[in-house]
Amino acid sequence: MRSFRHVRATTVAEACALLAEPGTRARANAGGSDLLGALKDGIYPEPPDLLVDLKTIPGLDAIEADEAGLRVGALARLADIARSEPIRAHWPIFSQAAQAVASPQIRNVATLGGNLCQEVRCWYFRYPAGLGGSIDCLRKGGPRCPAVKGDTRYHAIFEGRGCFAVCPSDTAVALAALDAIVVLEGPGGARRELPVQDVYTPLGTVLEPGELVTAVRVPPPAEEARSAFLKFTVREPIDFAVVSVAASITLRDGVCTDARLVLGAVGPRPYRALEAEARLIGGPIDERAAVEAAEVALAGAKPLRGNAYKVPLARSIVMRAILAALEG
């Protein structure tokens, strides 16, 4: 591993300033469960020479819930989100998504900000340099994506452009279904707020140099909203999602008045199935409606050569999530 400078930031402003330092390749680090693995594997063509530790910024791990909604600091650990009473009571799919990540050991260190901003798991992108050298790819500045003609079983079926890696975050999927807003802060007190799915681009995130995710805001849930988060993995625990779905459905007098259907691990960002949501709104939710909405949700899927199976798989998870939300 290459040597690097390590600075413990004590304020967001300091962290942003350090991350924006000209001439340095700085990276923010919190729980380290993603970044340290990436560094050990040597996946970055130009490895960072400065790590800015965010854990030393006081107060950034707060979980606050009131009538105005939920506000979770970027340093809140996934384990704390999973067991937070207000989150479990009012935004249960956020708690479920946090609980669905990896293993207890990792949830005890991994943070919300890190889960949202982690690197993709594409096995070309993450191929360890020590195993005969890195694999060049578009995301690392190379000319092309090796996945397109390679093994794409875990790659995108929606919105891939150039790069076909999928957003690996589970919490992003649940948060997108909850209309969550991500708070970004940058150098010089810059601050902006974006819907969670707008944080991601096909080649990474919209974060500017020096910019940090500092918090997530979630509006209060609709009174009659019901929701479910389902994650399909190859093994029981540990694995990243092959497909995940967060569904949130509001029912008034048996009629759906609002719906969110968000698919995870199918594209570079949480994929909101807007047409399927529209199909659900205005009618009763039953098995037929769920099947039809699932059909609509996957209608626009563009599988690659090796991942056509993800389409029917995602369709059945969407359908199950809608039905699970009804029961939830």
Partner: peptide, 24 residues
């Protein structure tokens, strides 16, 4: 026999529309 192998072998891709019937 991974999930994708089973899905492909069972031809669910072509039969997804029948899920509704199966579910009923």
């Amino acid at each position: 026999i991974t999930p994708e192998v089973v899905v492909e072998a069972l031809g669910r891709g072509a039969e997804a529309a029948q899920n509704a019937d199966a579910r009923r």
